[in-house]
Amino acid sequence: MKAIVTVIGRDRVGIIALVSQLLAGRGVNVLDISQTVLQDYFTMIMLVDASACTEPFASLAGELAAEGEEHGLQIRIQREDIFNAMHKI
């Protein structure tokens, strides 16, 4: 199952490492990354494959959000289908 991870927050060293490590530890494979920093504001979008994820999707989403909060970031994982449904015919 493909999903989109979005990370939004103030830029600092190690954000990509933090998120990638979290995902790798749970068997989630990163397929594509795009990131920008605009006026110290960090936005990263990752396309990931969560089919081999070692835990239920909902708890993965919860862990990412909690980890993000701890580091002053909004980290979200959402199934890709929602974006396809809203933006593609």
Partner: peptide
């Protein structure tokens, strides 16, 4: 990959 702007728009 889906357009970056569209992803952020949905989240907003």
């Amino acid at each position: 990959m889906i357009n970056r702007g569209e992803i952020l728009e949905t989240i907003e």
